[in-house]
Write a protein that binds this DNA or RNA. Structure first.
Lengths: 207, 207
DNA sequence: GAACAATTTAAACAAACGTTTAATTTAAAC
DNA sequence: GTTTAAATTAAACGTTTGTTTAAATTGTTC
């Protein structure tokens, strides 16, 4: 879409970090400018306002989250393997965009800004539909059970990951994940395994 | 614990609503005071500062969230029924304290305030341990499968509910839950059923 | 009802906020 | 090299922020 120069990219990166860490209201134009090594006036100069900066950031990041999931439904895999690959992709995407997810989940939950969240919603919708297609295919082939709420499966997958991340402090204590690596390692191994086990069990046809 | 008079309660209620809707930084002392129908100075007078108001609110609300879950592990039910009851209690507790959960999940995720979240963590820990006990009991009785990640089961339950609530706007659109009642009804019926189905499937022993 | 403490108020406080200005520097075009 | 546009700056703008003050009101005690 719109091309950004180096200065603008630096501002967007700084904004992403600080919006995620301190919230939109908590992060100030001055701290963002300082982190990006630019004059405070540059933000208004390039983006117009703080709110428009957030909007630009969301559109910029979501546009790069291309629908790579789409390809999976075309791959020649068993329905069960497709679901596993989808879960892997979900998790790796959140890991790669954890700041953005943090920001958008807060923005979605707040009633303050009636910001344009359509770009984020569109991605969510597309992903949900891919999931739906794969599962319905599996049901027709007799691999998956009927009578399950397909709409809520992405909710459980995403919810589990997001909830684990937001409560990082809690799990650092209770699971002893003191270092950053231990925490991330737990996500890619134990947590991912748990999600796969859970979804598999829900879908499994005992016949 | 500490007793609050009517004015203080009104301030706490107003603060809870506005902190949840607009975030801690987004809500101002003046809007809180206006909603509570008190002078702005009363907040400093009673609570000392905005930050201490949040702290008082958290301690006040979490102290009322007594460990009612504790009783369930003593009830004479099958392990499967106990799990169902635990899920019901989880959901009804979040429904009853949705504002507080909203606030605390944001506060937990932000790196800004190093606020005392111990009261919230203690509750989380207690609940997790009750869950653990019930499931381990079910495993010993042969009702539940072995080789599952017990720690992550509350994460999946809570994550699914919280994620559904935070993305309310999205599901209003995609599921057509236009009214407040339709949304809440979906949680108590479809979503609850989905969670129970999921956890049951994960725990079920096929032997 | 006088004396005292607790409550409530309007006003003011300094600090931080997002944004704009007007001047200056850098870059591009001819 | 002059001209024009773009980028960058420091300073100031008017608000809003959380908090405090000092005066006024209310409640309590004897």
């Amino acid at each position: 879409m719109t091309e950004f120069n180096d200065k603008q990219i630096e501002i967007l990166n700084a904004a992403e970090k600080l919006f995620a860490e301190e919230g939109f209201d908590g992060a100030s134009i001055r701290t963002i400018a300082k982190l990006a090594n630019v004059n405070i006036a540059m933000i208004s100069y390039y983006f117009g306002s703080k709110e428009k900066l957030l909007e630009a950031l969301i559109i910029h990041r979501t546009s790069t989250m291309k629908v790579q999931l789409e390809n999976i439904s075309r791959e020649d895999l068993s329905p069960a393997d497709k679901v596993e690959r989808l879960i892997d992709l979900y998790i790796s995407r959140i890991n790669a965009n954890k700041c953005m997810y943090q920001i958008m989940h807060f923005e979605l939950s707040t009633k303050k800004r009636i910001l344009n969240m359509e770009s984020f919603m569109t991605i969510k919708k597309a992903n949900s539909e891919i999931f739906k297609r794969v599962i319905e295919d599996g049901q027709q082939k007799g691999a998956f059970k009927a009578g399950i709420n397909i709409d809520m499966i992405p909710v459980t997958i995403l919810g589990t990951i997001v909830h684990f991340r937001t409560n990082a402090l809690f799990f650092e204590q209770t699971l002893g994940l003191t270092t950053e690596e231990a925490f991330e390692s737990y996500i890619t191994n134990e947590l991912t395994l748990h999600i796969k086990q859970t979804i598999k069990a829900l879908l499994a046809n005992e016949n």
